[in-house]
Simulated scan of single mutants.
Amino acid sequence: MARRSRRQRLTGIAGGSSSGAAVSVALGMAVAGLGTDTGGSIRIPAAFCRLTGFKPSASRVPMAGTFPLAVSLDSVGALSRSVADCILLDRILTGEQLDTRAAPPGRAAPGGHPGFCPRSG
């Protein structure tokens, strides 16, 4: 993908209620963002900003502190530059145990984050 200038990145719309999170990641102000999604509020801004958006199944991530629109459909999810980063953030949000040792030589950590390797098994 061709690198776009800052001016090009600032034109257009980001769409959806999680657009602030998407714009902050797209402009490099954050590594990842959080959003809530009922009908596309994570996925649409991610697509408009050329990011990865992940809407987990309802109730996978605790909804404490959110104001649900539709309890059976709402979920908290991640927006980031890669699937690997979304997976890592999902594991953190769900409380999955992570191995915080550095990745072994020759094995890249998810999302290129040294020191965070998901435990296997």
Rank of each mutant, 00 (worst) to 15 (best):
G12R: 13
A47V: 08
F48R: 10
R50Y: 08
L27Q: 13
D74L: 10
L79R: 00
A22Q: 05
P62K: 10
G28H: 07
S120N: 07
R7A: 15
S82Y: 07
A21L: 09
V23C: 01
T38W: 01
G35A: 10
A109F: 08
D90V: 02
L98Y: 09
A21P: 05
T36C: 00
T36H: 04
G111M: 12
R7M: 15
P114Q: 14
A22V: 04
A84H: 09
G20Y: 00
G40Y: 00
A84V: 07
T52W: 04
G106N: 01
P105K: 13
G28I: 11
Q8K: 12
A14S: 11
E96D: 13
M1W: 06
P118A: 03
A21Q: 00
E96P: 04
D37I: 04
V31K: 05
A109D: 14
R119S: 09
S17W: 06
S19L: 03
S18I: 07
R91Q: 13
R7C: 12
A109C: 09
G112K: 12
R101N: 14
A14K: 00
G15A: 14
R60F: 03
F116Y: 15
A108H: 12
I42Y: 07
P105H: 14
F54L: 15
R6C: 05
I42P: 03
Q97G: 10
L79N: 06
S72M: 03
I42S: 01
T36F: 07
A21F: 02
G39N: 09
T66W: 01
V61M: 06
E96R: 15
L51Q: 04
A109V: 15
I13Y: 10
L88E: 08
R119M: 09
G111F: 04
S41W: 07
V25F: 00
S59T: 14
D90P: 02
F116P: 02
I92L: 15
A46P: 10
L51K: 01
G15D: 02
V61E: 06
L79C: 08
A22Y: 03
G112A: 04
L27S: 00
R107T: 14
G28V: 13
G15T: 10
R107C: 15
G53E: 13
V23F: 00
R3N: 04
C49G: 08
T100Y: 15
R4D: 05
C117W: 11
A70N: 12
S120C: 11
G77L: 04
P62Y: 05
S41K: 05
A14E: 01
S120L: 14
G12H: 07
L34E: 01
R3W: 08
T36L: 10
M63C: 05
R81Q: 11
C86Y: 13
L89T: 12
A108W: 06
F54T: 06
A22P: 05
I44H: 08
D90W: 10
L88R: 14
G20C: 02
S24K: 05
Q8V: 03
S75K: 13
G95L: 07
L88Y: 00
M63W: 05
L27D: 00
K55T: 01
G20D: 09
